[in-house]
Design a protein around this nucleic acid. Structure first.
Lengths: 233, 233
DNA sequence: GTCTATATTCTGATAGAC
DNA sequence: GTCTATCAGAATATAGAC
């Protein structure tokens, strides 16, 4: 089982700890860490180059020296973030050897681990996807090319649902539900915690529990039938 | 049954159609419509006052004449958006007379209708909630005060789960799942459509189907049991 | 490579004519 | 109420010293 790509990232806090132990971190890396945290939390427009420089503890001019422009730096961070998202899809969704049920378990585990390691990633990804609904940018680096990985997984779901006959739910519901149950809790953790009276540790336990629960839920959802409408399946 | 508050909003497209039929729309309203669409789609920092003015077909100075500042205008729009979200919670979650199962059905119907009428609202709400995870702003107008409405609903869920004994899932899972299944599809509709090969009409049909499906799914999820961990329930 | 100082562009807001 | 013109400050980017 491969580790979430994102978990290996160096964050600003770890960087500062390292420097206390006289471990030198290059200015380039300091800038990248700060930029990653700020861009992922606040997005492109709300993040100021001065904030990145200040957080990194370096001079503003160095940012342009290493990365030419704010835009270029952002594209770099975005690409890294989207790779973390895409890696799971390509490697897991597209695996032709793995059975559907096991695949669901692996997907849930992969993403929950990745998001626990980088809490702001889900909101960032949602924001990117949502932005593209208004400004479509096909065929460039922002577009998440995943080949036919999704199709492989979708076919497996379709096949499974065909046993239920024409009253089975649309396969799109299954994929949607899977992603919903994984993503959403991370984007609304404060609300969840304050409203259900939970602390940070409770939240982590709940997310760990979901690794086992979501696959069970997804499987049971596929038992549901509905009067079919005219959508191609 | 009350209609989604948001559905009554005037959008820029409708405004232009109205003007073709010689119906006059005030400049103030034009600005507000444009601002609502842009702020909801792109957020505060990415939206420029010049863009709002251009979209509204009025002069930049008028924006400040009517609303004093970009910040004030944003707060107005945000308040309206959050009311649409909060209204459902306060009126439905907090209803002590309604049974849990019926309540779930009403909540799903209310939010899906509201989000079909204003597609960008879910992403906006998620963005606001997420932003507050980094910059908490208690006790001000941004904070979504919902009183004890959520508690009422949470207690109903707790009571229902108690029949399953100590191995029942935590009530927070149920609320989380409910909101996840409602919100997420709207924030990722482009991805959903492109990956499952659906068009806009298919998407709407799927969302309509979900009004019936989500309550069924939520009820069946509550049948799931798990080895209890030490979170207070 | 890293800094200070500065140029340049962008953006929110206002003054004042009509 | 609505516009044109303009200002003041913010934000990105660069020049040039060390």
């Amino acid at each position: 089982m491969f580790k979430p790509f994102i978990a290996t990232y160096l964050c600003v806090a770890k960087m500062k700890t390292a420097e206390k132990h006289s471990i030198k971190i290059s200015a380039e890396e300091k800038i990248k860490c700060s930029a990653r945290e700020l861009f992922t939390q606040k997005g492109f427009a709300a993040t100021k180059t001065r904030d990145i420089a200040e957080k990194a503890g370096i001079n503003l001019a160095l940012l342009n020296y290493y990365f030419r422009s704010k835009q270029k730096l952002y594209e770099l961070i975005m690409e890294e973030n989207m790779i973390a998202f895409r890696t799971g899809i390509v490697r897991l969704f597209g695996d032709t050897a793995m059975e559907m049920e096991e695949k669901i378990e692996k997907i849930v585990e992969y993403y929950i681990d990745a998001f626990l390691a980088n809490r702001d990633l889900p909101a960032f990804i949602i924001s990117i996807i949502h932005t593209h609904q208004h400004t479509p940018v096909p065929d460039n680096k922002f577009y998440i090319s995943i080949g036919n990985a999704q199709k492989v997984f979708l076919e497996q779901i379709k096949k499974h649902l065909q046993k239920k006959g024409i009253n089975a739910i649309h396969p799109a519901h299954v994929i949607t539900n899977l992603m919903s149950l994984i993503f959403f809790p991370f984007t609304s953790s404060t609300m969840l915690k304050s409203r259900a009276g939970l602390n940070e540790n409770d939240f982590i336990i709940l997310m760990q529990e979901r690794k086992k629960l979501i696959p069970i839920w997804i499987m049971s959802m596929m038992e549901t039938t509905i009067n079919s409408k005219n959508i191609k399946k």
